[in-house]
Design a binder for these strands. Sequence first.
RNA 1: GGGCGCGUAGCUCAGCGGGAGAGCACUCGGCUUACACCCGAGCGGUCGCAGGUUCGAACCCUGCCGCGCCCACCA
Length: 847
Amino acid sequence: MTRPVPALPERPTIDGLEPKWAGRWDAMGVYDFDRSRPRAEVFAIDTPPPTVSGSLHVGHVFSYTHTDAVARYQRMRGRTVFYPMGWDDNGLPTERRVQNHYGVRCDPSLPYDPDFEPPERPGDRQIPVSRRTFIELCERLAREDEAAFEALWRRLGLSVDWSMTYQTIDADARATAQRAFLRNLARGEAYLSEAPTLWDVTFRTAVAQAELEDRERPAAYHRLLFERADGTDLEIATTRPELLPACVALVAHPDDERHRPLFGTTARTPVFGVEVPVLAHRTADPEKGSGIAMVCTFGDTTDVMWWRELQLPTRAVIGWDGRFVADPPAGLDTEPARAAYAELAGATAHTARERMVAMLREQGRTAGDPQPIVHAVKFYEKGDKPLEIVTTRQWYLRNGGRDPELRAALLKRGRELQWHPEYMRARYESWVEGLNGDWLISRQRFFGVPFPVWYRLDERGETVTDAPITADESALPVDPSTDVPPGYSEAQRGVPGGFTGDPDVMDTWATSSLTPQIAGRWERDDDLFARVFPMDLRPQAHDIIRTWLFSTIVRSHLEHEVLPWRHAALSGWILDPDRKKMSKSKGNVVTPMALLEEFGSDAVRYWAASARPGTDTAFDPGQMKIGRRLAIKILNASRFALSAGAAPGNVTAALDQALLAELATTVDAATAALDDFDYARALEVTERFFWHFCDDYLELVKARAYGEHGDEAAASARAGLGTALSVLLRLFAPFLPFVTEEVWSWWQEGSVHRAPWPKAADLRGQAGAADPDVLTSATDVITVVRRAKSEAKLSMRAEVRRAVIAAPRAVLDRLALAEADIRSAGRIQDIDVREQDGEAVEVAVTF
RNA sequence: GGGCGCGUAGCUCAGCGGGAGAGCACUCGGCUUACACCCGAGCGGUCGCAGGUUCGAACCCUGCCGCGCCCACCA
């Protein structure tokens, strides 16, 4: 039977494959999720929704490629892959982008203007717009960005099912976040609390522990002179003298001999003359500063701890805007104290510090000059001013931060999860162990998911916070600033005896911690949710273990009492050539689309897939060139093999059987690596085999495949070529989806991405009992012949008159099986063999 | 301060108990029944340092040095 000759292109090229195949895959539904399949046949991926605040960068291309390789592998293994894309468009990044892009700012006090149109170009001054207008602009810009993101992902060849795309701000996501919150509230896991809160004065919002970062900042110890009860001076070192009016106590270590006599007595603050107690606390450090600290409400989190544990009064001085409040705190009762405070009122912390120090100096209440130091200060990771601590009412979600049982349960979840690479688990553990409070989930911002609650107003119009009115689950999503709570009418909004909506929105992580529930349509499609949840894989970058990964586990643990996924695959970062993390803010970043256009998507994917899981990797166009070369080689080698008649069939020659035996080993290695999410290893072993196939096997058999040694011998060679090519294309398909699909289409039916993953056992069956080392020995001989030609500065095509091979009997036997191929490949006229002892194989060549 | 990871050829990295490897770069040669976006050959390393375990260590143990990251109550 003759097979149809494949339609081979004259000069194949990898250029233009991306749009061609992206379009066909979409039309053919190659990556559609089949929701009729049972859970055991589903591979569900909790795709990271990229932040929509500008553009994707090389790091995204890098890590999403890793996930895509795994998705494609699982699909070829016969699973139906649940692989949605999401856009993380809620939250501060979008707000900031909208402010800059349109030149506007949100003023919630303004009424909605339906005809508002932003200017073509942002002006010098930001235009105030209503909350609703602001949100509309956020949505508009997000949609534009999302379209550009999708185009990039399609060009990169991500095998996502685009029918399942979600946005973290869309109605379904809002409803899901609100539903989960209401359930948390009903179970007592979410609660409202008025407490000192880390506060960003620029964005005027509370910030959670997970969003903090330390930055080294220059500061100085100022030594202030307090007055002991007996009238003598007491030196107190502080880096924040401006907080003196907020001082509520002095604290030293209980064993500190210097200060022990003072415990139980009081001291007076300089300038303000306020009497404060001297107290002992085990966490006071005798080595630090003067060994005795002033406790202010609040300078840092240590102050908060002492304030809480020692039950101290509150004398807050810093307001929401970071400036000193107008009225002096309680305790500043004397006229001089009030006058001194008036100097600080309205000032920023920086200005207040200068004025406070000046006043202290004038009154002779400092000891010596300030001593400069450098110390770590807490910042909001997206902010550029140090955080203050402000007492506010906020929503919290229990996360084990103040509950040892829950913390232990969450640590246990971390041990249940399979981490790739394994050592990333340590980051989770140290984070959970270091939690110092519950998760603050409310933000005083606009573009986010509102809390689905309202509060009663009493007869005087004061908000009653202890019994929030909750939305009905069936009404979700709600916006309490426009929707009305059950049993009320809009006329009652904001009036005494009526209601008011909760003004805050949820932390972006409070939404994205629910990506499995959002994508799996929890409570909206029970059948789907049961088929995909808990999911198989959470791929993500290692820097958001403490935020996204941890918070997702918290939500799943609280709501479903189960781990949200079985595996977590952590990807590294892309580093600049100078080894710094590559990020947009640093500029000079190559845009991904330009890379895809220059090298081709397969080439860029090759670079990404070459990096070890979890490892930070240098941006390396050199690797992309190699990937491009590999893709072109696949094209050319395939065309050549097919033009020589490559087609699956029975292999009868020992050399061909040996090839398939070697290939079986490669299939085993690649399969084991991908089962372990080690895409890089799978690619490496496949690539190594492929070059061996091209350089050695193809060279050895091409004459035979062309029929120079007879029809039967040719048939075996063509079967060896065809079988190996089919397997190799499938092994490469997860990494180089475009070129493999192109070649597949020349001679096979359907998509290679729906073809079954190769089975080593099948190859071993075809290889039979032949000596698997025949190919190795033949390769050794032609390598020596090539070297001889190189050294003689001859063309590879030069004729060899005679080759004398001296080798052990076993090797000679193997070579005999492939002698005709060796002669053709080396252009050798006569081969003489001589048996010798030992392992060595020697070849003497005469031209 | 605690933890994790990494230091192997000029560069990027693999190898993690028994012959020091790959690709790039470099040198030399070659238009070979596909591929000059190519092919062949070659040069190149006290495997961070110092001890220890072992018949044997790049690989295991200890200490140190350097780099990166994570965490930490930062007066």
